[in-house]
């Protein structure tokens, strides 16, 4: 795996203190990129950044609240000051929760939509500002979900937010194409991360499942490749979308879900 196809690239990954974000940040560094490890949880981000540096990679931890424009601006400034430019941004920070359709309250909607929807919009705008100024194009990769392609009754507001990510991806591709900035999304299925551990507890708390792991097993039984996903399954696509190999791909939301959803 030790190729250097991202050598000299400056990347940042939001929500990189855990889960898929951590795995992406580490893979980018392995392929030679300098990586901004951005997260609300700065201690977690520092830990990931130092793990990358221990492996001989280049990383900087960036505190970032994606719903706060000033914080996003500061994060991008920090990456540019550290590595000289911003070539690739992964808008990966997101939150999820299990809530039955009839139980979604206004505050639930606002919290989920703020982080997953508005947070992606703000990060795209601020990253675009920087990339346009650099004048060398760039790449934006957003984290959507199978829930960005299909509505599920146990998380209607989460699905709405991930559909929003797909919409922003398409709109961004049209807005920034002439600047040679590509915008794509990837759509994981059931990935075993801390987020799913949290959802699993919520399934049980709401009486939807009875034992730990049950909800996940039931979801995963629909994946053609017959197993739950790990962040490692996602990083190959992340790396492809960050590399020059995907230069003619834009506006796409690519499923990486073991064959659960085909549209």
């Amino acid at each position: 795996m030790a190729n250097e196809r991202l050598a000299g690239k400056s990347c940042v990954v939001t929500g990189a203190a855990r889960g898929i974000g951590t795995a992406i940040a580490k893979r980018l560094a392995e392929e030679g990129a300098s990586v901004g490890v951005a997260d609300l949880n700065i201690d977690g981000a520092r830990k990931v950044a130092s793990e990358i540096e221990d492996q001989g990679g280049k990383a900087v931890a960036c505190p970032c609240d994606v719903t706060d424009r000033a914080s996003v601006k500061a994060m991008i400034r920090q990456v540019v000051d550290s590595f000289g430019a911003l070539d690739v941004i992964f808008n990966n920070a997101g939150v999820g929760e299990i809530r039955l359709f009839m139980d979604v309250r206004e505050e639930d909607w606002e919290r989920i939509m703020n982080v997953n929807g508005l947070g992606v919009l703000i990060c795209m705008q601020e990253a675009a500002r920087q990339m346009i100024e650099q004048g060398k194009g760039g790449k934006m990769i957003n984290t959507s979900s199978i829930a960005g392609k299909e509505g599920y009754d146990l998380q209607p507001h989460y699905c709405a937010s991930k559909f929003a990510v797909v919409a922003l991806t398409q709109a961004g591709a049209r807005a920034f194409g002439k600047e040679r900035i590509t915008v794509n999304a990837f759509c994981p299925g059931v990935v075993h991360t801390e987020l799913w551990d949290q959802l699993d507890k919520e399934f049980m708390a709401q009486g939807i499942s009875e034992r730990p792991g049950q909800a996940m097993e039931e979801f995963v039984s629909r994946a053609l490749l017959g197993r739950k996903s790990t962040p490692e399954d996602i990083v190959g696509l992340a790396s492809f979308l960050a590399s020059g190999d995907s230069d003619y791909i834009t506006g796409q939301s690519i499923m990486v879900d073991g064959g659960m959803v085909m549209n």
């Binding site: 696509l237 790396s239 879900d257």
Partner: peptide
């Protein structure tokens, strides 16, 4: 790297 994709039209 493409090991978890199937049934897709990229």
């Amino acid at each position: 790297d493409g090991g978890y994709l199937t049934g897709q039209a990229i």
